[in-house]
């Protein structure tokens, strides 16, 4: 379906999330689904972000707190492991960093322009006071 302008709205519109049929949505991971262009999965809100989370897997304990508390379905979890942040859908709210229990945190917020490798290389050390 081609995207239409605001004045071409159909009354009683029905949007299909998928191209073709998926029998078992709850058993199909998001990457394996055939999203249609009308699913917001195909859209991006990356330009909302002023700061971005950077994930350092060296300190991650796979507790999945960030996965459950992410409002934008942007934490990618595979087989009970946290593997990264979906930068198309992350709005940069910073909840994942707040709920991260490790010391030092395995997710930290950096300005959008920051280089990921450079930030991971200069990751803050363990905070002894905590």
């Amino acid at each position: 379906m081609a995207n239409k302008g605001w004045d071409e709205f159909e009354i009683g519109a029905m949007l299909r999330s998928f191209d073709g049929s998926i029998d078992d949505i709850a058993g199909t991971a998001q990457v394996d689904r055939t999203y249609s262009p009308s699913s917001s999965y195909t859209a991006s809100v990356a330009d909302w972000r002023l700061v971005k989370p950077v994930f350092n897997k060296d300190y991650c304990i796979d507790c999945q707190f960030c996965w459950i508390y992410c409002p934008d379905v942007s934490i990618i979890a595979r087989d009970k492991k946290m593997i990264g942040v979906d930068m198309d859908h992350c709005k940069g709210c910073g909840i994942c960093v707040e709920v991260c229990p490790t010391n030092p945190k395995s997710l930290l917020m950096f300005p959008e322009q920051a280089e990921e490798e450079a930030e991971i290389a200069s990751w803050p050390a363990k905070d002894e006071e905590k």
């Binding site: 991971a29 934008d72 979890a77």
Partner: peptide, 23 residues
């Protein structure tokens, strides 16, 4: 929570809720 995290979400990102919305 580890077991829970294997769920395939049926709610998508790139919705227009505010960053940090609990909804």
């Amino acid at each position: 929570l580890k077991e829970f995290s294997t769920s395939a979400d049926r709610f998508e990102g790139a919705n227009l809720l505010c960053p940090g919305c609990a909804h």
